[in-house]
Amino acid sequence: MPQRKIAQAEMPLADHAFYGLVWAGTVLTERVDRALGKAHDLPVSWFEVMLWLASSPDPVPASVLGNSAMLSRSQVSRVVDALQGRGLVTRTPSARDARSVEVALTAEGRRLFAEADATRRDCLAPVFADLLDRADLEALSAVWRKLKAHKEGGAAGPA
């Protein structure tokens, strides 16, 4: 006899909403990981670190990078090692703190990031951006900001 699934109506709203976030994050991340791996030999964890670096005009202290990425500090360190091994990032001693290093994308890292970011957008468009309207995206952004602000102990700000 086939197993039945719990219908949405049987699941409390908060549980369904949480499950939906987990499901969407898992499915979309796996999709991006496959696309980036196939097109650029670039795991999604590497892409995430590159995303933070690409969004900063200046080199990023390794500790800040570790606090920003959705990876553990040891994972960030391993990713930076791998990226440096491929010539995609540099590590330089910090001018502000002799005990720390700063990480920056190389020219090759910026080039690869731009290509990988286009791949990410293309692979997500049909299953995310093209399905959602501006109000949907704003609502998701408001939820993300609210959850993140609570984690960081701050105010959620305007929705």
Rank of each mutant, 00 (worst) to 15 (best):
L140W: 10
A7S: 09
L28C: 03
A95F: 10
D41H: 05
F128K: 02
S74F: 10
L137Q: 14
L36P: 03
D136Y: 08
Y19T: 07
V101A: 13
V60C: 06
A159R: 14
T26R: 12
R110V: 01
F18P: 00
D33R: 04
K148L: 10
F47G: 01
G37E: 04
K5G: 07
E115F: 02
L140D: 06
M50S: 04
H150F: 06
T29Y: 09
L132I: 05
L147C: 08
A142L: 06
V64Q: 10
D58F: 09
A129T: 15
L140G: 15
A129E: 12
D33W: 02
V127L: 05
K151V: 11
V27S: 08
L88E: 09
Q75G: 02
A54C: 00
Q75T: 13
A129N: 08
V79W: 02
E10Q: 15
P59V: 02
L124T: 07
A159K: 13
S77T: 15
A24C: 07
L124I: 11
Y19P: 00
W46S: 12
V22M: 13
R110E: 14
A69N: 03
S94R: 09
W23H: 12
R73A: 14
A114C: 00
G20M: 05
F113V: 03
S72W: 05
S56D: 13
F113R: 02
V101K: 11
R110C: 04
P93A: 15
P2E: 11
V89F: 07
R31E: 12
V49A: 00
A39P: 00
L132S: 08
Q3V: 07
T29Q: 08
A35C: 05
A118P: 01
G85A: 12
R4F: 06
R121K: 14
L65C: 05
L65P: 01
V127M: 07
Q3Y: 07
V32M: 07
F47E: 00
F18E: 09
F47H: 09
D122V: 04
L36T: 06
V143L: 15
A114L: 02
N67K: 11
R120A: 05
Q84F: 01
V32R: 01
R121F: 10
A82W: 02
H40K: 08
D15T: 10
T90R: 15
V49G: 01
H40F: 05
A135M: 08
D15S: 09
M50E: 05
A39G: 03
L65R: 03
L83I: 06
D133W: 04
A139Y: 11
D97F: 12
D136V: 08
E108N: 10
P57T: 03
R145F: 05
I6G: 02
T29I: 01
E115N: 04
E48Q: 12
V32F: 02
A95V: 14
T106E: 07
H150C: 01
L147A: 12
A142D: 13
S45M: 03
V79H: 09
R120V: 04
M11A: 11
L137A: 13
T106M: 10
W144I: 09
M70K: 07
E108K: 13
A114V: 01
G87D: 09
G37V: 00
S55M: 10
T26P: 00
K38W: 06
A118E: 12
M50W: 03
R121P: 01
D58E: 14
D133E: 13
P158Y: 04
R111T: 13
K5V: 08
V60A: 02
